[in-house]
Design a protein around this nucleic acid. Structure first.
Length: 228
DNA sequence: GCGACAG
DNA sequence: ATCTTGTCGC
């Protein structure tokens, strides 16, 4: 429990205003619906920073529901925006998409490390990527960004709703492993809560993180060493 | 005015 | 996200 927050240089108010408006416009393009069909290929993506000015994004493609690795690719580029809560997608999405384009085969659905609609303007990076790629997406985050919830049961499989101040559902807080901090799962684009939760649970293999994002996270660390 | 604040 | 050792608990 830190008594303070690391100092973050104030972001250019003009940029923040413009990106926030852009996000509000994108919001109208997000759709929540079940998948057209049971997925055969599911992807996981995550990013790491070899240096403060370099971002490295990874995409891991897995067969579903067996979860065998089919492909893994990555992309690196120069960071152009600082981290600003709520505007994470503008900092990471460009490079994540560059990695996505390197995949030989495209997934039926993407599990993103971060939030979907569990965001102040319902536009977390998972929803953002879904709209730009016009692909089903959902988010699996390790920390809350917004919303309220009651701690779910301490055993694997316990779930409790994440809601906004109006009581609307933003996502679900899921205990993916006994006695470890829960995950925050929310739909992105062209996906609904039931699907996001079902796929997350179907991808658990004894670890806190479901395989798609766990492996993306793992390779983001491995590739980082090669790059620097 | 006082907290909260993905990665 | 990143820096960074040992250590408590199942």
């Amino acid at each position: 429990m830190p008594y303070f927050r690391p100092y973050t240089p104030p972001a250019d108010p003009t940029i923040v205003r413009d990106l926030t408006r852009l996000q509000e416009d994108m919001r109208s393009r997000v759709r929540q619906e079940p998948l057209a069909a049971e997925p055969t290929l599911i992807a996981g993506c995550d990013s790491s920073f070899p240096t403060p000015e370099t971002i490295l994004s990874v995409f891991v493609l897995l067969r579903f529901p067996t979860l065998e690795i089919v492909e893994k690719v990555y992309s690196t580029s120069v960071v152009e925006l600082p981290y600003i809560p709520g505007l994470l997608s503008f900092r990471e999405a460009p490079n994540v998409i560059m990695a996505y384009e390197k995949l030989q085969q495209k997934p039926d659905v993407i599990m993103v490390d971060g939030h979907g609609i569990a965001h102040p303007r319902r536009m977390g990076i998972a929803a953002h990527l879904g709209v730009l790629l016009d692909k089903p997406t959902f988010g699996v985050a390790k920390q809350k960004l917004t919303g309220n919830y009651v701690e779910p049961g301490l055993t694997k499989g316990s779930i409790s709703p994440l809601t906004d101040k109006n009581g609307d559902l933003l996502g679900e807080v899921i205990r993916s492993k006994d006695k470890v901090n829960p995950l925050f799962v929310s739909p992105g684009h062209r996906c609904d809560q039931a699907t996001a939760t079902r796929l997350t649970l179907a991808c658990l293999r004894g670890y806190k993180l479901p395989e798609p994002t766990r492996l993306a996270d793992h390779w983001a660390e491995e590739f980082k060493k090669e790059v620097r």
